[in-house]
């Protein structure tokens, strides 16, 4: 809700750009608009960046929209955005399409890291999972479909059935999960394919039988995140920002911003600012892992 309000406010400012903020800046009412669109995983932090940047440089307005990594990349190909947010790298065909349509290759910027948390209802006694176990739950041909098979009994789930909650089949999160956990195998049919990470978290928090996955930043109090081991016998790592940055957590991925060709002018300044200490600390504040660990906001007690 808050997100759409902010977006509304931003649109309002775009429409009536003279009446918002300090109109008597050095360049008067002349404003540059940066269009930024893409991954729903990144949309929260992209909004926060856009807002904070409005104070850093009032002559630039950043307009942020979600819709998914694919949507943002399509928009970059069509030339309707300056920066596309994505939670996955460009596919070969997409990279080709950018060159075809824009005449220059796409430039990728890693702006942070996201850890995918696998989570269950808070009453579920499950404490640890391994990647092969998750693949047996979600992957085609996998044998795990009842909680007893993992040796647990879930209160409030008399049927014992594992209700698999997943994402719609073209979200970046879905694709990344298929690659990192299922090793590009297909998903088992019959999962509940919800539209958005927040919906997955909400549903799992209300459904004792359920298991789901989403970006770590979406974790809420209604769910429980078991630790994840790369394989049977490997150390079991809690999904946290620290374990995502140092690479020990097995399901973490880089988050990208793409531009068509080398960025220039306002877009370059914006990307530089995102990678600066200030921009990276905003990312940390939203629950993602930064690109480097020597940030003022990551005090010694946090590391």
């Amino acid at each position: 809700m808050g997100r759409s309000n902010r977006r509304g406010a931003l649109t309002f400012c775009l429409l009536f750009s003279l009446s918002c903020g300090a109109g008597d800046g050095p360049r008067g009412g002349h404003r540059t608009v940066i269009q930024n669109k893409g991954s729903d995983t990144l949309v929260n932090v992209a909004q926060a960046w856009a807002e904070a940047y409005g104070k850093v440089n009032p002559s630039v307005v950043v307009s942020v929209a979600g819709g998914g990594s694919g949507t943002g990349i399509s928009a970059l190909i069509n030339g309707t955005v300056d920066i596309a947010n994505s939670s996955r790298p460009l596919s070969d065909s997409e990279a080709e399409a950018v060159i075809q349509a824009r005449g220059v290759p796409a430039q990728a910027f890693v702006v942070g890291y996201d850890a995918l948390a696998v989570f269950v209802h808070r009453d579920n006694p499950l404490e640890a999972l391994t990647i092969p176990q998750i693949a047996e739950i979600y992957g085609e041909g996998g044998s795990l479909d009842r909680w007893e098979q993992l040796g647990i009994r879930v209160p409030g789930c008399p049927s014992g059935k594992i209700v698999r909650v997943s994402r719609q089949n073209n979200s970046g999160t879905y694709t990344y999960f298929a690659e990192a956990v299922l090793h590009k195998n297909d998903y088992k049919l019959g999962s509940l394919d919800l539209h958005g990470s927040k919906d997955v978290v909400d549903l799992v928090s209300k459904t004792p039988c359920a298991i789901g996955y989403s970006g770590l930043a979406y974790a809420s109090t209604g769910i429980k995140m078991p630790c994840v081991a790369r394989e049977e016998g490997a150390p079991c790592i809690q999904p946290t920002m620290e374990s995502a940055v140092d690479g020990s957590y097995p399901i973490a991925r880089p988050l990208f911003m793409f531009t068509a060709g080398e960025p220039e002018g306002a877009v370059k300044a914006y990307l530089d600012w995102i990678l600066s200490d200030e921009g990276q600390c905003i990312l940390v504040g939203k629950g993602y892992a930064p690109v480097r660990a020597d940030l003022p906001c990551l005090g010694p007690e946090k590391q």
């Binding site: 789930c157 049927s159 549903l203 209300k206 459904t207 004792p208 359920a210």
Partner: peptide, 15 residues
């Protein structure tokens, strides 16, 4: 409805 169906009929998921 999701919670109502889970509680009333004991089904694994209400959607």
């Amino acid at each position: 409805m999701n919670e109502f169906l889970i509680r009333t009929f004991g089904v694994p998921v209400g959607l």
